[in-house]
Each structure stands twice: as C-alpha cells, then as structure tokens.
Design a protein around this nucleic acid. Structure first.
Lengths: 432, 432, 432
DNA sequence: TTCGTTCTAGAATATTCGTAT
DNA sequence: TATACGAATATTCTAGAACGA
C-alpha cells in the first residue's frame, strides 16, 4: 500500500484506489488515462473511502484533491436532471496524475497556506508597481502594433480601391472594344448599302434625337437616387458616362441590371454590417456584375422568339442583359447568325422589362424605335458587303489571311496570360 | 408556499422544507425546535433537494446554510465508531431559525463578500489603482481598435472577393467579345464578298454628329464636381489626362509593370511587419497606366514577323471553352461550331465539360499539340483555308470558318484563365 | 464532452449545443457560421435548455449570452407584422463564437460587475494584484488578436497582389484583343488596295523592328521577376512607358473617369474612418489603369462632327485612338493614318516620350486641335477617304446600321454594369 | 512539522428579477 | 416593445482555517 516515502499518503492511496480493478465500477481511469472518474459518488463515499481514509465523506476526499492541485473536470451535460441514467459521476484531473506514469506523482505538491503575512504588503506594492510598469510598456508596443496594422489596412483599402478603379477602367475598355467592334461592323454594313446611319444613331442613343437628352436627364436623376445610402456608388455611376456617346442609359432600363443593382445594395447593407461576416467569404459576394456579351446569343434567341428576324437587333439591351444570366444559354449563335444573315429581323422589339421606376420609360421607346431597322436593311448593309463587293477582291482573300496572324498572336498572348495568371495561393492566415 | 417577500427564497424554502411533516424522516426540527436535522444525507440530497432547488447536492445546500449564517451542530456521538447504525445525520442551527417563529426569518441576513477591507492604506495603493484604471480603459480602447480592424479586414475580404468576382465576370465578357469577334470574322468571310474596309475606317471613330459635343461638355462638367471631396485623388485624375488621347503611355505596359510588382511585394513583406508602412500615400492613386494599345504595335510586329499562318494554330479549342464556362455551358459553343463550320469539322471535339480542376497541364498540352498542326491541317479546318486555298473558298464562307478554331482556342484559353484565377481561396481568418 | 478547462461551462455547453446536428432544427449555426440561430424559442427553451442548464428559461439563456458579450442580431424582417408565419427565430452573435473555430472561445470573457470597490479603501494589494492578473491575461488575448490580424492582413496583401496580377494579365488580354481588332481592321483596309497590310502594320509603330520584339520579351521576363518583393509603387513607375505606344492613356482623358476617381477618393477618406488619413500608403502606388477606349467614341463623335457628318462611324479605330493621344497629337494620328491609309501620310510621328507629368492641359489642347481636323484633312489622310471615296458607299453605310444599335446597346450595357458594379461601397469600418 | 479531516469562506459562474433606454 | 444590463440570489468549485494525529 505504501508508496515511495516521498509521496504523500493521500497520493499513494489515490493511485492505488484508482488502479484497483476491483473497484473500477466506482472509481477508475478515464478513457485516455489522463484523469479518473468516480462513478457513483454515493456508494463510493460510503463503501470505498472508509477503506483508505478515516472518513466516508466525499467532501473530505475532494478537499484533499484540491489541496494537491487536482481539478474537477466539468461535464458539458451537466445540469441534466438526474432522472435518467445519468449516474452522477465526477471526474478529477491533475497534469501529473496519469495512468501508467506513477513516477510523476512525485511532482505533485500539496498546497501550503501562503499565510499572507499581512505586513509585507508594502513589498507587494512595489511588486505591483513593477508589474504595472511592464504592463505599460507592453501597452505601448501593442499600440504601435495596432497603429501599424491600421496603416496597413488603410493601404489595403487604397489598394483595393485602386484595383477596383483599374477594374472599372478595364471595364470601360471592354465597352469601348465593343463599341469599336460595333463601329467596324457598321462601317462594313454601311458600305454595302447606304444611309442607315442616322437611324442607327438615333437608336443608339447617341444621336441628336431628343430622346437622348431626356435620357441623359433621366440618368442624372437616377443617379441621385442611387445616392441612397450615399456611398461612393453614386459617384461611380455618375462617372460612367462622361463623354462618349452615352448609350448606356438605355441600358439602365433593363431590369436585369436593376435587379442586379438591388442585390448589390442589399449585399452592401448586409455585408458591411457589423461584425463578423466571417471570412468565409465563400458565399459572400453575391457576385456583382452579370453582364456579359452572352447577350449576343440571347438577343438572337429573343429575337427569334419574337418572330421578326429581320433585324439583328442586338440592340435590344434586354436581350443582352438576359444573356448575362448565367442560366440562359442556348441560342447564342442564333443571334449572330441573324445578325449576319441577310434575312430581315424583327423591327420593333420594345425593351421589355424596363422598370426603373419609370425613369427610362421614355428611353425605351426611343430605343425601340431605333431598333426597328428591318432585315432588309441589314442585308443591304451587307455586313460583309465590302468583302463581296469586288470579285477580284478574293485574291485579296488575303483579307482573311490578314486576320489570321493577328488572331494567332492574340491567342498566343492569351495563352501566355493563362500561365502567368496562375494562381497565387493565399495561405490562410488563421489565427491566433 | 410563498413566503414573505422580504425573505430570500432559500430561507422560505428551508422553512417549508423543515416544516413539511411528510418529509420528517429526512429533515425535521430538532427536539427543542432550535435547529433542524437531516437524517439521511444521501436520500435527502437526491430526493428532497431537487424538489426545492435546482440541484441535488448536499454541499450546495450546506453552502447556502453557511451563507445565511447557519452553523453545523457537532454531534456528540461523532467520536463513536463508524460501524453500527449511526445514520449519518447532520444538524444545522441559526439563532433566528426556530420552530414556530417564522417571523424571525427576516432577521437572517445573507453574507456578502465584503471582504476587501483593506487595512493599510498605503497611498500608493490608490496610485496603483489609478494606474490600473488607466490600463483598463486603455484595454477597452485597444479592444475596440482591434474590433474595428477586424471589421475592416472583413470588409476588405469581402471587397477582394467582390473584385475577384467582377474580374471573373469581366473575363467572361472578354471571352464573349472574342467569341463575337470570331463570329464577325466568320460572317464576313462567309459573305464571300470583300472589300469594305476602307469605308469602315472612315466611319470609325470620327463622327460628325453633334450629340457628341454635348457629351463632351457634360464630361467637363462632371470633372469639376469630382474635385469636391477628392483628395489627392484629384491630382491623380489630373494626371490622368483628361481626354485627349495619349499614346505615350502605352509603353508602360512593358517591363515597368513587372518591376513595379516586385516592388510591391517587397513592400508587402517589409511593410507588414511592424508598424508603419508609411504610406502616407494619400495620393497614391495616381494611376499609372497599364493598359494600352501598344499591342497594336506588337501585334503588328509580331504579325509581320509571323505572317505565315501555318504556325501556331491551336486547333481544338472548343472543348476547352465549354468546360470552362461555369454558367453558360455548351450550347453556345456548339452553335458556333455549327454556324461557322461549313462542314462538321471536328465533331469529336466535344466540349469537355470537365472542369479543369486547375490543371492546365492538360490544356497546354492540348494546345501545344494543336499548335503543331501544320498548315495543311489548318486548311482543312478551314482556318487559313481562304488564304491558301482558292479564291472560291470565300463564297463558301469557309473563310470565316478558318478563324473559328483559333478563336475558340482563344476563348478556351480565356476560360482557362478564369478557372485558374478563380480558385483563390479566401479563408477568412478572423480573430480577435 | 470535456471542454477546455479554461472555457466557462456556459460557452462549452453553448458550443456543444450549437454544434449538435441533432438539434439543428432548434438551434444551429447561421449560414456563414458567424452566429447561431434559435429557431423555435418555445421548444428550444423547454426541450433543449434543460438538457444543458439548470433551467428552461430563454431569458436566462439570453442573460448568459449577454453576460458573455453576445448580441442579438436584428432580423431584417423585424418590422414586418407579427402576423403570418413569422417563426420566432432569434440570432445571436459574438466575434469569437464562430463555426469551425472553437479555439476562439477562450477569448470570450464574461463580464464582471466591477462595481464593487468603489470608493473606499479598496484596497488590498490582493485586489490590485488581481486586477493586474486580469490585465495580463487581457494582454495575452490582445496580443493574440494582433497576431491574428497581422496574419489576416498578410493574406489580404497576398490576395490583392494576386488580383492585381490577374488584372494585369487580363489587361494584356484586352490589349491583345484590341490588337486583333486592329489587325482585322487593317486587313480589311488592305482589301481596298491589296496587300499593304503588312507594310502598314509595320509602319504603324508596330512594325517588326527588332526593338519591338525585344520589348515584348522584356516584358515577359520582367513579370516573373516582378513577383519578388516588389511593391506597388514600383509597378507604377514601371507602368509608365515602356515601349510601345500606349494609347491607353488616352482614355484617361475622359472626365467621367476623373469624376469617378474623385468620388472614390472621397469615399475612401470617409470610409477609412477616423484617424489616419492613411495615405501613407506607401504601397498605394500601384498604378491604376487609366486606359480606356472611350476614345473610340470620342473620336468618332468628334470626327463625325468634323468630317463626315453623314455618318456616325465610330468605326474607325485608328481615328479614335489618335484623337485620344493627348501628347503627341499629330503624330500618332499620322501613324495610324499611314497605317490604314493607302498612302503614307505623316511620316514623322515620333512617340512622344514625354511623360505625362500629370498635366493634361496640354494634352487636351493637342487633342482638341486634332479633333478639329476637318473632314478634308481626314480625307487627305485617307482616314475617311474610303467612305467618301465612293459615293454609293455612303448609302451602303446603312447596312452597318443594323449592327450598330445592338452594339451600342451592348456598350451601354457594359457601361451600366460598370456603374452598378463599381459602386459598391466599402465602407471602411474603421475604428480603432 | 506535515498531513488529514472538517467546517466555513472565497470566487466565479448561473439563474432570476427588475428596469433603463 | 424589446434589448441589454444591474443586482440579488443560487450553484459550483476551490480555498482558508482550525484542529487533531
């Protein structure tokens, strides 16, 4: 029974007690051997304790445990009504009290009443002061760190802002490209036949047509509204159309966009908010833009649906927008086909869904009117007309050829890009 | 059941408990009514206590008794051997807890840990306390700061995510543009006829429409306004170069960017560290141009150099693209293929819907293999056919077709990019 | 079942409670894991709470939550009439109570009513020591937070860097696309005459001159390297002018952009919050893109106005581009002209090496002057020549029209998108 | 002296109540 | 009305202290 003389009796007894397999139903090691459990406090105190100690009180046993630095392990399922089967079991643990490692018992020390001698309170004060000094120095350091972090964050914000701006710029570029392409197409078409321009212009929203102005106006108005939460958004939007021709307004009509906006807003409101959004950004972000040229496809489809194929009509913004929708895929080609095909399209395809709060209603109308170009016109315009114009041109066939190299080049470049792009990995920070 | 409102619940319950004759076998008044006895601690704690309190622990009951000034009454028979019938009974007493005298309960006061009463005054203590108070307030502030930083970071994460998404969207747009261009080219080729270019050029870019001017004006206006809140940014904008066209910048693209990036990194690494990064870059923004059309030049040069279409040629493009498209899958591509290919070209190039899984190796390989296609192959595909083949090809529209594969390839490449790029994981750490 | 001894029982239980999938219908994590929801208050309090606590009162549960710093998350639909099915669900959140991050529980501190003490002698050193101990523990926590933030920031930086790189890549792609378009145009133009394309290209600054290649090469190389430590600033400078002609800048001219920028800035400033202006963004610099093709439009418009009023014609890319050139006005145009024009126009258009110095005044002027070119001039240049050349051509112009609207629409869409998307406000929380 | 036993207290958390905003 | 907090009490775990071996 007795253990090493160095080890207090209580610890020796406790070890023996826990090790004893014959009493495992009342007291035993925990699963991992890092603590021990007393399963039935009642029986344990009355049946086991007297065998080792001079008492049969659980409280005394616990007092000793605490005196030697043991701690009760709280059960999460506490609080449960003892009704059910929950046998009241208690668990105690000590870093140096582990199954299979009795040699660690020597490291367990009994607590001694520090008897704080009241007198030396003074010394303690000095100690306290010292500690305070340390604390203060630490504070300074911590504060510095915070400042640094804050600056860093500011830089990050600026950086993000910069990125966003660049992104916007790029976006504009894309827009321009599209525009350019449009121009190209036009010019080609034009060459074939004549005179369609004016119309186009009108439709395009650029032109001199009065509607245009109204649009602009509406735009302006709308902007203000956007100011709601008053964030930068407004400004942004405003910035949008500076100079070029602004066809954009028309677009606004489209619901899709609107819907998108709303979402965005909502997102903003919510996301921003307080605390944690968790980094799990995975979800976050409702993606923002949705626009893409898929519209071409859609437009085609929509057109088709409408029946009057005579015109291309990609003009219809709606169609375009729709196309953006990830879901609506299909027909992409149709549009193109129609566009390029000689057959006449459908003239009046009003912009559908506009809602915009009534601001753009006008615009739409104007738009639709424009769109009305008929198929014939298109044909006449002869998208490819130029090419065809001259028979001899063919030799020039070189035309196509010309493109090729460029495209290849482009393709290559892109490929390159892909390589570079590859993905920086971000290691997750994580934390603390 | 209810007791005087002045009397704490514990005392009320205790009185009721002791008075209850139905439980006299477990708890009852002492002979003289000056104290009460708990006869069977075991049963009492498990059967009675839960009926009155939120626990079934004798120790908790005792703790309350002590808290209210009750004291245990030592049993004379304590010394007796534990054997025999000595049912473990405990007795508690309080001067104001007497049978038949419930009115005295109001005199029983619960102890409050007034402990601290410090004897020595040491003035210093007050000083120390003062400092501690400061420290604590600082803690609060610091904590707030951290929280703020954390929120800021979360917002940043969100922002970055948003940017990434937008970027992706843009990417899609680009892809679409390419697609569109491809279509255009094709159509043109198809038309068979040629020649229109010159015209286009003219039209392009320069338009005489009055509206234009109006736009410009608006632009100007906007600028001024923008200056408002603007900070250094304005300067930036200023640097931007308003509207003229600036060709010079183009150059920037080249190396400079690279160098810049490197710098950025360095900064990061260094900056991160402790405190200040210094950036009082309020102005930072000055945008630098990154994008430019220099490509035109490059393209030209490369083209010139290459000119011979036989090379490159990434043929099997289609497959790749589809796989990439997250949203709009296959159809579009197929469509295009059909449209542009005079005859079913590469039927087998089903769009691999598989996702790249971030592996580009495959793609590249495919690519390279494709590239290897010799001119002839290309011709077959129709890619360069026009050039090489014969003039008649043109009518067949086969011309345009030629382009298709290349374009598709390009599109795919882009798609690839998207995949790779997207993957970035943002785990939000969180913390604080 | 066992929880960390350091973590209060309430938190352990709460965690277990929320994690328990079997009770997800009553209590579970929120979508993003940053908070938890109690769906059916009634059932939860009566069925779940008693299993973990000594009560079945929602209020007590909430009190504990508050005691530990949890806060109720207001439901957006709060204002709605209580009518219908409004399932009474409540949501609570704590910055350190997040799904998948149980290690943060240790950072949640229970509030202590520091009230006591007060005035009098508080005293005792012990008290002071106690406080110091708390302060120290807080320090540890704070330090941990800082570390976490730091890591998070590092990740953010990496992310931003990644985005920037990807952006750049995309930028290149766009550039390539432009290139391609340019090539296409050229080829077409060639058709008119035959076989000039190559030459033109060459001349246009793109040329095959060895230097060009060297540039490209350098670029690629540089990029890889860029990944190093580089900071953003460098990039900026780098971005400045490498070699080719950069048309991109041109875009900058447009006011919209500028306006937008300003707004952005303002936003930034405000968002950032308080203190620091932050701008010490050492890094900030990373250049932002400025380039856009707006010029196309502008050019078009201006041209139209000036020269061939009959049509819009934004088609000609070159013209547009030229117009954009702020600095080297004349020359650039000339170049393009030369390229596309059958006859060599203005030979000497050196690339303006001057740096923008951020002054646009000059640029603009140049620009305007350019724009002013009248039709005739253009004609001379050969720019519009094609159109005018053939009388009939004009009429044909109508053809193109069909496309135009669609394209314009598209352009607008994109613009819209920009507006919508961009605007996201990031309010910087700020704080500290 | 050190350790063991017992009774009581300290300290922190838990539960309830009341109320300020 | 509802959210959050102060305050008082309740429960638990641990510690202090007295006393004896």
């Amino acid at each position: 029974m007795k253990q090493n003389c160095n080890v207090p009796a209580f610890l020796s007894k406790l070890w023996t007690l826990v090790e004893d397999h014959s009493t495992n139903d009342l007291i035993c090691w925990s699963q991992d051997g890092s603590s021990f459990l007393v399963c039935d406090e009642q029986r344990f105190s009355k049946e086991i304790l007297p065998l080792y100690f001079k008492h049969s009180n659980m409280t005394s046993f616990v007092r000793q445990l605490n005196m030697y630095g043991f701690h009760k392990v709280v059960q999460v399922d506490a609080g449960l009504p003892r009704d059910s089967q929950r046998v009241d079991s208690v668990e105690f643990q000590h870093p140096h009290f582990r199954q299979t490692q009795p040699h660690l018992l020597g490291l367990i020390r009994r607590k001694v009443s520090v008897s704080r001698g009241g007198e030396e309170g003074m010394t303690q004060v000095s100690q306290v002061l010292l500690e305070l000094g340390q604390v203060r120095s630490w504070q300074d350091i911590s504060d510095s760190k915070l400042m640094g972090l804050r600056r860093e964050n500011e830089s990050l914000w600026r950086e993000v802002d910069s990125l966003r701006q660049r992104y916007q710029q790029q976006h504009k570029i894309i827009r321009k490209i599209i525009h350019f392409i449009a121009s190209t197409v036009q010019s080609k078409g034009i060459t074939g036949i004549k005179r369609k321009l004016p119309l186009m212009i009108d439709s395009s929203g650029v032109s001199h047509s009065p509607p245009k102005y109204s649009r602009s106006i509406s735009m302006d108005h709308s902007q203000p509204t956007s100011t709601l939460h008053g964030i930068q958004l407004d400004s942004v939007s405003g910035s949008v159309y500076p100079n070029g021709m602004i066809i954009s307004d028309i677009t606004h009509l489209l619901e899709p966009l609107i819907g998108a906006q709303k979402h965005r807003r909502a997102q903003l409101t919510e996301g921003q908010p307080q605390s944690s959004v968790g980094p799990s950004l995975s979800s976050p972000p409702t993606p923002t833009v949705e626009l893409d040229l898929s519209l071409l496809e859609d437009a085609a489809s929509s057109q088709t649906g409408q029946n009057s194929p005579d015109r291309i009509d990609p003009c219809d913004p709606l169609a375009l927008i729709d196309s953006c929708l990830p879901l609506s895929p299909g027909p992409s080609l149709d549009l193109l086909t129609e566009l390029f095909s000689p057959a006449p399209c459908s003239p009046g395809e009003g912009l559908p869904t506009d809602d915009l709060g009534g601001k753009q209603g006008t615009v739409q109308q104007a738009n639709s009117s424009n769109t009305q170009t008929d198929k014939q016109t298109v044909a006449t315009l002869g998208w490819d007309a130029p090419q065809k114009d001259g028979g001899e041109e063919e030799e020039e066939g070189g035309e196509g050829t010309d493109m090729l190299p460029a495209l290849l080049q482009l393709a290559e470049e892109v490929s390159d890009f892909t390589y570079l792009a590859a993905p920086l990995s971000l290691d997750a920070p994580s934390l603390i």
